[in-house]
């Protein structure tokens, strides 16, 4: 139950992009085409699923106040938590290098399409953010940390997939010139974020059975929003 709750919470309520704005840079830069967006999204899920549990172990057995007690009684007073940034980022950089090598070996086409963005995963805020939030939210066990990594990765994946799909369509609508490209993407993301706010009561209101119902309702609402926007765009075109 705990796992399911954490899963839904990290995918929908605390969605990395819409609630905490993590990984916005690559989210904006790589979302022009659905195929590349999917590739990057999968890479993010993968890297998060590895680094969050790894960093959880580091945090638990090395960095937290008193974490060194497995070394002996005299180490119990040590507090190395100020080192966590440097330890986390080192773990992440190493893992990303590893992923890069593996992808280059097994899927050259994916490697080509991701191009320079793969090294940028190391500086994708979503990855470090995953580890830092794991630390500040005090995730209780290794299993939960793994779950947290995967589910926040899935949340990020959903977000980039949705925006890439919308951006592919928006090419056919007439956006005011000054808003083209970046501006309209920001505003759409804001609207999607408002849509995602409606997931807020998912875990607190109603019984367990109603969960899927609330979810689909909100999804439909979001799709309606999209449809409406397309409709408006079409109308403006005909008027012109």
């Amino acid at each position: 139950m705990e796992h399911l709750e954490l899963f839904f919470k990290s995918v929908f309520i605390d969605n990395m992009v819409f609630a905490t704005f993590l990984g916005m840079c690559s989210y904006l830069a790589v979302s022009k085409k659905v195929t590349t967006a999917v590739g990057l999204g999968v890479a993010v899920i993968f890297v998060l699923a590895i680094t969050v549990p790894l960093n959880w172990l580091l945090d638990q057995y090395l960095l937290q106040p008193g974490a060194l007690k497995w070394l002996g009684k005299e180490y119990i007073d040590y507090d190395l938590s100020f080192l966590s940034f440097i330890m986390f980022i080192a773990t992440i950089a190493t893992m990303v290098q590893l992923v890069e090598i593996i992808v280059e070996k097994f899927s050259p086409s994916l490697y080509n399409s991701l191009g320079i963005f793969l090294p940028l995963i190391a500086v994708n805020c979503a990855i470090l953010g995953g580890s830092l939030f794991m630390q500040s939210r005090e995730i209780a066990s290794l299993g939960l940390a793994f779950n947290y990594g995967i589910s926040s990765g899935i949340g990020w994946f959903l977000a980039i997939l949705a925006i890439a799909a919308i951006r592919e369509k928006i090419r056919y609508s007439s956006v005011p010139p000054a808003l083209r490209g970046l501006g309209i993407t920001f505003i759409i993301t804001g609207l999607m974020g408002i849509g995602f706010l409606s997931f807020g009561g998912m875990l607190t209101g109603g019984d367990e059975e109603e969960k899927p119902a609330t979810k689909t309702e909100a999804v439909i609402k979001k799709e309606d929003l999209k449809e409406d926007k397309k409709e408006i765009a079409k109308n403006t075109k005909t008027i012109q």
Binding site: F18, I187, T189, G190
Partner: peptide, 10 residues
């Protein structure tokens, strides 16, 4: 709320 930051930047 967080989404408004995006809209303001937009």
């Amino acid at each position: 709320l967080s989404p408004m930051a995006l809209i303001v930047v937009g």
